[in-house]
Amino acid sequence: MWRWFHQWGSPKFFYHRSGVLIPVLALASGLILGAGVFWGLLIAPADYQQGESVRIMYVHVPAAILAQSSYAMMAVMALISLIWRLKIADAAVQTVAPIGACITLLALATGSLWGKPMWGTYWVWDARLTSTLILFFLFAGVLALRNAAGQSQTAGRAASVLAVIGLLNLPIIKYSVDWWFTLHQPASFTLTDRPAMPFSMWGPLLMMVVGFYAWFFLAWLIRLRHELVKRERRSDWVQQMMKQ
């Protein structure tokens, strides 16, 4: 198993082998997101109390889930980068931060657009919303530290340390609605319990979550491959590739 990690840890191996995933992910995310939007926007029923505004759930919830997952992935990559000093892990941290930041902003924005008609406000400083805003600042912080001193090792390490420490925010986001009195309601969708909604609603929701993940890996992969080629541009394999 270690050999497998070592193989994929090499930028050249990773670059050459991961290329095939791009069209696969592009097709998958396009189809799944397209079908999911059609299902959620046109076929799924309205909610008995939220009316048609419930359809915002089909973009807000996947964005929120992805925001948290992508942070977890970034933190794991940061940990690997700090302990094993793997270049590819470092590149992974650098490339996922901007995507995670954008997705977190999307989650916050769609949440605001849902909150205004339903709660009566675009924003409130409750534990769930505030900790998600902190998540955005953590992504931004990792980005800022990274770019502060170019490609210096210190900048990279500081960014990775911040990423790992910021992991503490994730359980806070997740359990904020259980631990404290918040405006944001508790989870409708957990890994263990039955969803608090019928299939006509959790079907499109699940499809959109899968679609968002497919899109995420596509975006990250494109970005990571670009970063690897950039970093290794003086190496033989890149020079060879560019001559073609």
Partner: peptide, 26 residues
Amino acid sequence: ILAKHDEKYMPPEVAMALDATRQDPL
């Protein structure tokens, strides 16, 4: 005044059926 809603979602028909029988399908 802000409205706080719960985490349960259901179509209107289901909600109306609920009111009729006073049972929770979830």
